[in-house]
């Protein structure tokens, strides 16, 4: 119930912001929505892991970065379009995620939460510095023609391609919702997320479910890595900020609330795009997520004190 209310609040706030911005400068709205799509598509897998496996994966963005690098080199070698690499990249990162789960995270699940945080932090360093060691910190980019496709409505002209992130994010949210409520495996995963011990008692293989969910989340992030490459340049540290922003969005939505992430992303994307519209304020846009985290934490601790 509280989840529903929070989702509604976030969506209403997001839409209200969208409306106000649209009245003022429609391009700001368009860029904000596109950015929101990117944020949401990366944050949703983190929300899935946090909601069911109950760990904060501090290596989240690094998995995306590794997928983007793998795609980059595969495409460079074969001349393939990164768009065709989305599915293979997802498969490879799913495998990587599953191996990482089996070798490390599984062993830390019973340990205090502290150990899990330090462990995934270490995995993130291993991935980003490993890439740095192998391929240096040089930025890499694949130039694609369709990415610069633009559209003109009246006096308004804007890029169309980034809307793909909005579509992907929405598809992820809907798909996961269906998966978690309609399929046997999904229902089992949801049960494990709510009460691992209870789920084990009724005969669900908790460990297998955790592994599966982690691999699924990493597959989504891996696909996003290939998609990210179509538009942006990559370097070893490119994933880090996404880890923190994703956590911010998941915390805003409330843990376990995947549709809420869409609303939260809309709010973050629009606020950043709003600040970027002013020349003097442009540089401050990347600080918004931090302010949002603090506001969320404050709000939650005040509510906790009341009850």
């Amino acid at each position: 119930m509280a989840m529903k209310r929070r989702t509604t609040i976030l969506v209403v706030l997001g839409l209200a912001a969208a409306f106000l911005v649209a009245l003022w400068k429609p391009t700001v709205l368009i860029y904000g929505v596109q950015q929101a799509g990117l944020y949401a598509a990366i944050a949703i897998p983190m929300g899935l892991v946090l909601g069911i496996v109950h760990i904060v994966n501090l290596a989240h963005g690094e998995f995306m970065m590794v997928a983007a690098y793998a795609t980059y080199f595969a495409c460079r070698a074969t001349g393939l379009d990164p768009l065709l690499a989305v599915l293979p990249s997802a498969a490879v990162t799913a495998l990587l995620g599953w191996v990482v789960y089996k070798l490390t995270i599984r062993r830390a699940l019973k340990a205090p939460e502290l150990n899990q945080l330090i462990l995934t932090f270490g995995i993130g360093i291993l991935l980003s510095q490993g890439v740095n060691l192998l391929f240096t910190s040089q930025t890499r980019k694949i130039s694609l023609e369709y990415v610069s496709a633009s559209m003109t409505i009246g006096e308004l002209s804007f890029g169309v391609w980034p809307f793909v992130f909005v579509i992907v994010a929405t598809a992820m949210a809907v798909g996961l919702k269906l998966f978690l409520t309609r399929t046997t495996t999904g229902k089992a995963a949801l049960a494990v997320g709510q009460n691992p011990r209870g789920a084990a008692i009724v005969g669900i293989d908790v460990d297998r479910t955790y592994g599966l969910v982690f691999a699924l989340a990493m597959a989504l992030v891996g696909g996003m890595g290939a998609l990210f490459l179509t538009r942006s340049a990559i370097f070893p540290g490119v994933g880090g900020p996404f880890t923190m922003k994703s956590f911010c969005l998941v915390a805003m939505a409330g843990i376990g609330n995947i549709p809420g992430i869409l609303g939260a992303s809309l709010l973050l994307g629009l606020s950043e795009s709003f600040l970027r519209a002013f020349r003097e304020l442009r540089g401050w846009a990347d600080i918004i997520f931090f302010v949002l985290i603090i506001v969320v934490i404050l709000g939650r601790s005040l509510k906790g004190r009341k009850s």
Partner: peptide, 22 residues
Amino acid sequence: RIPYGHLVVYGIIIIVVILFMP
């Protein structure tokens, strides 16, 4: 020895210590 990316060693140390000798 490794001017770029020697930090990877600390990542490995962190992981190994947390898993095997907390």
